[in-house]
Nucleic acid binder design. Structure first.
Lengths: 346, 346
DNA sequence: GTGAAAGCGCTAACAG
DNA sequence: CTGTTAGCGCTTTCAC
């Protein structure tokens, strides 16, 4: 089992010193054409690849960034991941992937284990905004010069760079539109209160309702957790209300599925018997000819942006006092499911 | 910006030598209770975490495995990834994630860049089974003692461990069932020929048809590429045939969506106007009350198994002459979409 | 433009 | 049980 060649073997083969080999490999300083050729030939011949651990130890830096994702199998996060990997290998960075399964304890463990790797930076969608343990660890990274970028969710601190979207505004406009076309009884199935997305989307809803002088009725504001089952149950509750809503806003992709499941069982068609507008587009539904209206955003781009932020921090040594908050736009896409039911069917 | 503490600082703080610190940290050999306590206290006090690069350089081994995935945003692969990460952190291994976007050239680049990291092992779903360049690189890993596990797809070599599923058998049984309940004109939309899953699923179809003395009609065997658009077009073609099939087998999740899109446009209901059986279950469809029958398998488990295989290879130093091939079962789940159309509607 | 040599932080003999 | 020391492979002064 042949070992990987090291820099000494290359130096010997090329008849130069290891310093010269290093210079050629890193383009770090001028080397004579002749020596450069010889080194390159040796590298080729011995199939040499520099040892990252050694390099990283020597320079006390690395080429890896840690990415912490709460639920890898959720399409939203895998699209995020897609964007992250795309940008990362454009920049020559490698991704250490960690999953927390929405579990704070696992998140702490993961964050601890990441320290061993002397990462260049960290991109994380934290489980909760209010977790002091996580916050402490993130501050610790920054204190050690390892930039942290929060993605989609935030924490109770303004110290980090963040990439988020205009959820509030997106939902505001969506509900505005619902009201404009005649809806008055508009419900929302919310996300977890401990997360920015959950809170902001609810806020957009409330803002719009209030702006139009519509009451915020408790029975129309159903607490969800971004999961299908809970949303399904809440949708059923809404539909069986004495005075059911004519429209439901669902706060994320899973919530939308929960609503659709409930509607399916009740025989309700969206845009005809009941209006539904969701947060985050679901490509699959278009293939199935669902005319779902959504507040949409470019998810892979969010991941890309997070990567670029990291890069920017890596390049400008300076550490800003406060993190920058990049807010990507959302877009209201109307496909028909927002329509006011023609007749009272509920 | 305080730097991470190193082993010398711990040694000084604890009043012992670095060797003792190392011993405590790695539980590598006995240390007196007293010293152990002092070291642990120092570690705690200085918030020490060992430097992985140094450790890895010193031991010329590492704790990371490379995972190469062709399409991170495809739910199938993100479920695979979910299983992989689950198993990996149970084993204390870290994941270097690489995406190839089904592009062979990127795959080669990725494989090259992975060599720098001196990984413990590699798990890969290769873009193509017939790519000599990829094959060469994979052999290279094995030659250097870095085990390679192929996941879902294989390559033209028996040298590596593989985790696959009984696709052939699964499809065979599915088509058997179609025939049993009365279907005779059964079509298939295939996957890429250059991949094991594509080939095997087609084979299962052919085997069943032949076993029942049914002809393999060219116009019923439509070449697909596991993508929605192509499947959609092929489904349309099938439905407009002079003698259209009564049942279609779709070779993967995306293909299934393509069929459903076509059926939606044509106003065909599965299990009523036309039968559809797909490979790989799609949870979302159940929420939407689709009664899709599928050949199903435990996808996260496939990822877990791949990880376990790697672990096994890592523990038994011996390198087997041939890789082992682990074949996980598939299961036929009948939900109604397989039913024979009552009347000729096409 | 080039080479010698001093680390980077850790592990693993080897002596005691 | 404990400490000393020689690397692991590479980068980076510092002389030449």
């Amino acid at each position: 089992m042949k070992q990987e060649a090291n820099i000494y073997e290359i130096a010997k083969e090329a008849g130069v010193s290891i310093a010269t080999v290093s210079r050629v490999i890193n383009h770090s300083s001028a080397v004579s054409e002749k020596n450069k050729r010889r080194v390159l030939a040796a590298v080729e011949k011995l199939n040499y690849v520099p040892n990252n651990a050694a390099r990283s130890l020597s320079t006390s830096t690395s080429t890896s960034v840690g990415v912490v994702i709460p639920d890898i199998s959720n399409p939203f996060f895998s699209q995020l991941l897609q964007g992250i990997t795309l940008a990362s290998d454009e920049m020559g960075l490698n991704i250490f992937l960690f999953g927390t399964n929405e579990n704070s304890e696992r998140e702490h463990k993961v964050l601890d284990s990441m320290r061993e790797h002397r990462l260049r930076g960290v991109i994380i969608t934290p489980v909760s905004a209010e977790d002091g343990e996580t916050l402490r660890r993130l501050h610790n990274f920054e204190a050690r010069g390892i930039p942290v970028v929060l993605l989609d969710r935030e924490v109770d601190s303004t110290a980090f760079d963040r990439v988020v979207t205009a959820d509030d505004e997106g939902v505001f406009l969506a509900v505005n539109e619902l009201i404009r076309i005649g809806h008055r009884r508009i419900a929302i199935i919310t996300g977890p209160e401990a997360s920015r997305p959950g809170r902001e989307r609810l806020r957009g809803y409330c803002r719009s309702m209030e702006a139009h002088g519509l009451p915020l009725r408790d029975e129309y504001i159903r607490k969800g957790n971004f999961m299908v089952q809970c949303a399904y149950e809440q949708a059923l509750v809404l539909c069986s209300l004495p005075e059911p809503p004519t429209a439901i806003f669902s706060s994320n992709n899973m919530t939308t599925y929960g609503c659709l499941k409930a509607f399916g069982e009740l025989g309700l068609r969206i845009g005809e018997d009941i209006a539904l507008v969701g947060f985050d587009d679901i490509e699959e539904l278009r293939w199935l000819n669902y005319n779902l209206s959504v507040v949409s955003r470019d998810v892979p781009k969010m991941g890309e942006q997070a990567m670029r932020h990291l890069m920017r921090r890596l390049e400008n040594e300076i550490r800003p006092e406060h993190g920058t908050r990049t807010c990507l736009p959302t877009e209201l896409i109307l496909r028909g499911s927002e329509c006011l039911p023609k007749k009272k069917t509920l």
